[in-house]
């Protein structure tokens, strides 16, 4: 017992310093020539929720699969709590669990069978697996559905079953790859509530292309674009990376005014115009737009604005891109909405 306490004490010290670290992590698929990940380096404390945002094809899934020991990187290293994803994969797998992006429940099984089977794979005994599965499903409001066939459940419920599986496990890190894609707004908000509960006990690594989701859940947020980590930090850090405090958006489908912006940044695209500027200038522009009868919205700078701003700026820095990507981005997110 004494040695157990000593070991627990050592572990306490180690956990205080628990970090998820990537060091020049790169991945090029053998079939392709483009790098899916390009020298990604960062280090985050393994607590709360880390959200990785980026559009489709930005490398989010590749990164999460490498960290979850499903995929080998081409070069570079990644580790959690000092355990390397390549060298110490067996030990690391004791601590991690993942719900992949396109994971689906097996239709001929029930939620109880699905969750308890996953726990058996994690090495729990049969009765403990059943108890844990029942508790997890109950906590997600799935008690009455636990013995129905998965094929009879709604999309949101099926997602919950998979989340219940990893939630009921003893994993310290939970990877969720775009867990709310395809869910209706109500189910998505229910899922957010669930996430807030999970993050109290585990480190959750989540990818999404819903920026409002990142804003709602992320203690730390990373922005990935074309395999490169564009920026990372808390929401506050990211806000500070944009020196403007207000965003004025003039939607397309009406006459776009000729804007005279004193201190600010104007971004244009098929979506209309987006102006990032200071408070005083934003209200001056607003008054002008009201005078001209032009529809617009004015808001404090959101994660959407920061993302478009940073990705556009990095795009210019990396590839001499003059903002064409930004238009694609807006189009993409408009479609998503």
């Amino acid at each position: 017992m004494g040695s157990a306490m000593i070991m627990a004490g050592r572990l306490m010290g180690a956990l205080d310093a628990s970090m998820l670290t990537c060091d020049r992590l790169s991945k090029t698929y053998s079939a392709g020539t483009r790098e899916a990940l390009s020298s990604v380096s960062y280090s985050v404390p393994a607590s709360g929720t880390f959200v990785l945002i980026g559009r489709n094809g930005s490398g989010k899934t590749t990164l999460i699969r490498i960290l979850a020991t499903e995929l080998e990187p081409t070069s570079g290293r990644a580790s959690f709590d000092g355990l390397d994803v390549m060298r110490d994969a067996v030990r690391l797998r004791e601590k991690i669990a993942i719900v992949p992006q396109e994971a689906r429940t097996v239709p001929w099984m029930t939620p109880m069978q699905t969750v308890s089977s996953y726990l058996l794979w994690r090495g729990f005994g049969y009765s403990e697996a059943r108890h844990r599965a029942a508790d997890a499903l109950d906590s997600l409001g799935m008690k009455v559905y636990m013995d129905r066939l998965n094929r009879t459940l709604s999309g949101g419920m099926k997602r919950k079953v998979l989340v219940a599986a990893v939630l009921s496990s003893d994993a310290e890190i939970i990877f969720l790859d775009e867990p709310t894609t395809g869910l209706d707004p109500v189910s998505r908000r229910e899922f957010w509530e669930l996430m807030r509960e999970i993050e109290k006990e585990r480190f959750t690594f989540l990818t999404t292309h819903y920026l409002e989701e990142a804003e709602a859940l992320g203690d730390r947020i990373g922005m990935l674009e074309s395999g490169r980590l564009v920026r990372m930090g808390t929401l506050e850090d990211l806000r500070h990376s944009v020196r403007y405090s207000y965003s004025v958006v003039i939607p397309a489908g009406q006459k776009q005014p000729v804007l005279r912006v004193g201190d600010g940044e104007v971004m244009r695209g098929s979506y209309g115009s987006r102006i990032l500027t200071g408070e005083e200038e934003a209200f001056r522009i607003s008054r002008d737009l009201i005078k001209d009868g032009i529809r617009f919205s004015i808001n404090p700078v959101s994660l959407d604005d920061i993302f478009f701003y940073l990705v556009n700026r990095e795009g210019i820095e990396y590839a001499g891109n003059q903002g064409a990507d930004l238009e694609q981005l807006h189009q993409h997110y408009k479609e998503e909405e």
């Binding site: 157990a4 572990l11 601590k95 058996l120 794979w121 994690r122 090495g123 005994g125 585990r202």
Partner: peptide, 21 residues
């Protein structure tokens, strides 16, 4: 969390369960 992590470290995985799954 620390205690759970410790338990996790010393937990014996039931190979038969994994096989049965």
């Amino acid at each position: 969390r620390i205690w759970n992590s410790y338990i996790n470290t010393i937990r014996k995985r039931n190979r038969f369960s994994q096989f049965t799954a």
